[in-house]
Write a protein that binds this DNA or RNA. Sequence first.
DNA 1: GACACCACTGAACACATGTTTAGTATCTTA
DNA 2: TAAGATACTAAACATGTGTTCAGTGGTGTC
Lengths: 220, 220
Amino acid sequence: MFSILNMRSIDEDVTTRARIRDAAIAAFGRRGFTASTVRDIATDAGVSPGLVIHHFGSKAALRTACDAHVLNTARASAESSNDPDRLRDVLTEYLAQPDDYARELAYIRSSVIDESAAGDAFFDAYVRLTEQILAEGVRAGTMRQVSDPLATATWMVANSLGLLVLGRHVARSLGHEEFGTGTINRIAGPAVELYTHPLYTDDSFLQATRDVVSDATTGR
Amino acid sequence: MFSILNMRSIDEDVTTRARIRDAAIAAFGRRGFTASTVRDIATDAGVSPGLVIHHFGSKAALRTACDAHVLNTARASAESSNDPDRLRDVLTEYLAQPDDYARELAYIRSSVIDESAAGDAFFDAYVRLTEQILAEGVRAGTMRQVSDPLATATWMVANSLGLLVLGRHVARSLGHEEFGTGTINRIAGPAVELYTHPLYTDDSFLQATRDVVSDATTGR
DNA sequence: GACACCACTGAACACATGTTTAGTATCTTA
DNA sequence: TAAGATACTAAACATGTGTTCAGTGGTGTC
């Protein structure tokens, strides 16, 4: 309850306003926006409920401030460098150190789950980033040209974010107490393995899938 | 509001109790458990709020009844046949006809997102099913033996369920109004393509990943 | 026909919610 | 130091919540 407050990932802004915002980020990430109450956030921040409204205007505006602090920061740093060599995959970076970025990850998770303009923007930016990474990989010869870059990038982003959203289940499935470094370490290998060595031994299932899809798309 | 009530996927149980349960399934799937109110469910079912409690005892018990109706049914049918040749991937089947199973899919989505024993059981059962499918594929020669079957199965389940959980984003990313048949048709090909033709042209990234993981696991 | 049982409603209850308000302390600035 | 703004609290308000309760009408049973 207290140990979650001093993580090195969030800058040490000690103003009361920042303390409230950080408590809200933790609450929204833990229980979601609707289930989090202004009173709980105020208690976690050691403050009266009225002060939360005084500083942010409303619970919805508080959420917007949290979005700006977590998501927009992550999104901006993902979009920051135009140099393809230095493209940074922010989410992967966060996921690589899940214990240090636990709050950011939890907040991104809940933003992406419930309807939120900031969550939408994050997902879309992440797809664009992945498209760039794919294109650059092809140019560099490290990746194969895929048939549908946009859909492939979307699928890969859904995979990464799906790991985050379903982290609790993934951890439990692997016998871990909670989602953390151990879970990531166990999953990363097999995931990259699937991207490196094909699961299927021939094209038959791919052909079958394409046949079904084209049947559904053209005639019925 | 009314058209969502007559779908062919849900059996035509016309008792009031069943009408309430179906309205609850729709509400929980649409807005989640916490955000759904007993009053809204009662209104959708054309009934007074008191009757909802009269039939199910409490909102929590109503949820349990919905779990039993949707998740346990799906899970049971996934586990039903012991014959590996007839293993049915229920979620894939649902996802193949997203318009027909919209309510079930939405309900599974929200069950898997928020903490729910039924959602946990569904995920775990789905991992076991995937492990069996992988093992059978290797035996039949259609799939390659992976290095970590449990982690691979967990990752694949997270991918499939991630597609469902993030369906809204996936649809938007592909320019679709909403998540439906069109979205699935566009995604299925590239997804199976990645399972068939490797993304990476050599082992270097896989090796790098394994080095990082083993470093983190052994010494620090 | 009387009785018990059941589905069902409308109103109320107790509590939790986001927000407002009146008032107090604390800080800033001239 | 005086004054005005700002940070902050305690209490109240209005509304929405899950649930309860008293009562009504219908249905089947002896």
